[in-house]
């Protein structure tokens, strides 16, 4: 039973992976970027759990910087996805400009909060 379930799981992952391989490269880049941001945030949370939250504003700005970036990247991914019919009239360049602008504003706030 256990054996068959692990095999099922392997099959499931393989199917998922093959389905994902069909994703366009630019979306894959964004996914990678989101992964990078989230893992950086996780490392900071681990550090906080280990040594305490003393400069709490620094911790918050570090984590929020990563999480914010990830959220913005997800938004970008939604907008540039060709499958997504809702945004088909929106040029990917326009979406990228929005992404850049939002990032600049976010990081201005982050820097201010960093202390």
């Amino acid at each position: 039973m256990a054996r068959s379930s692990s095999k099922d799981a392997q099959d499931l992952f393989r199917a998922l992976w093959s389905a994902y391989s069909a994703t366009p490269t630019n979306l894959k880049i964004i996914d990678l970027y989101v992964l990078f941001a989230i893992s950086t945030a996780l490392i900071q949370v681990a550090y906080m759990a280990l040594v305490g939250s003393f400069p709490f504003n620094s911790f918050l700005s570090g984590v929020l910087s990563c999480v914010g970036t990830a959220v913005l990247a997800v938004c970008l991914r939604i907008q540039v996805n060709k499958e997504n019919k809702e945004f088909k009239d929106l040029a990917p360049e326009r979406a990228f400009a929005d992404f850049v602008l939002c990032n600049l504003v976010l990081h201005l706030v982050i820097m201010n909060f960093l202390g």
Binding site: L32, L35, F36, A37, S39, T40, I43, Y47
Partner: peptide, 13 residues
């Protein structure tokens, strides 16, 4: 450690 995901990101690219 925080640099590691960045390196992973580059490798992924």
């Amino acid at each position: 450690l925080t640099l590691l995901p960045f390196i992973g990101f580059l490798v992924g690219l």
